[in-house]
Amino acid sequence: MDDSRTTDATPVAVPPDTDAPTAAFFDLDKTIIATSSATAFSRPFMAGGLLTRRSVIRTAYAQLLYLAGGADEAQTERLRAQLSRMVTGWDVAQVSSIVAETLHESIDPAVYAEAVALIEEHHEAGRDVVIVSASGSEIVEPIAAVLGADHVIATRMAVLDGLYTGEIDFYAYGENKATAIRELAAERGYDLAASYAYSDSITDVPMLETVGHGFAVNADRALRRVAVERGWGLLTFSRPVALLSLVRPSTRSVVVATVAVAAGCALAVWLVRRARRRAA
Rank of each mutant, 00 (worst) to 15 (best):
Y196W: 12
A222T: 14
A100Q: 07
T258W: 03
R278F: 02
V87C: 06
I202A: 00
R53N: 07
A40C: 14
L103Q: 05
D204V: 02
T102Y: 01
V56I: 13
A185E: 15
L28A: 14
E120M: 15
H104I: 11
L79W: 07
M86S: 05
I168Q: 00
I33N: 06
L192A: 08
A34M: 09
R252S: 11
L223T: 07
E114S: 02
A113L: 12
D91Q: 04
G264A: 10
D191E: 10
L50V: 01
D191L: 02
Y190G: 03
A185K: 12
R58P: 12
A47P: 14
A13P: 10
I119V: 09
E183G: 08
D2N: 11
P15Y: 05
A242N: 06
I153V: 01
G162Q: 01
A68S: 09
V146M: 14
E101P: 05
R278L: 05
L64M: 12
A227E: 04
I168H: 02
I107S: 04
A262T: 03
L67Y: 05
I107F: 01
L184T: 10
S97G: 02
F237K: 08
W232A: 01
A62E: 09
R273H: 00
L50A: 04
S199Y: 01
G136H: 03
S253K: 15
D200M: 01
V56E: 09
T6I: 09
A93L: 00
E175T: 13
A242M: 14
A9R: 12
Q75T: 09
L160Q: 10
T203G: 06
A260I: 15
A216Q: 06
V269G: 10
K177A: 10
Y171P: 07
Y171D: 09
D29L: 03
K177C: 05
V256D: 04
H122G: 10
T35M: 08
S238Q: 08
T39G: 07
S137M: 05
L51V: 05
G214L: 07
F25W: 07
R5N: 11
P16F: 06
R224S: 03
H122E: 00
T31I: 03
R248C: 03
R248V: 04
A197P: 08
R5P: 14
R221A: 15
G69D: 07
H104F: 14
R5T: 15
A68M: 11
A280R: 08
V130Q: 02
V228M: 06
L118D: 13
L103T: 05
A113R: 15
V132W: 07
R273F: 06
L50Y: 00
Q75I: 13
G89H: 01
E101A: 05
A262S: 11
V111W: 10
A60V: 08
M207N: 07
D220E: 12
M1K: 09
D29Y: 01
Y164A: 04
S201A: 07
A24R: 07
N176H: 09
L271V: 04
H104N: 14
V228F: 09
S36H: 00
V261A: 11
I139L: 10
L246I: 04
S55A: 13
H122M: 10
D200K: 03
V241T: 12
N218E: 00
V259K: 15
L235Q: 12
A260Q: 11
D204M: 01
I202F: 02
R5M: 14
A149D: 09
G174T: 12
R225W: 06
D204G: 00
E120G: 14
T165N: 10
S55Y: 08
N218S: 02
A260K: 12
A13F: 10
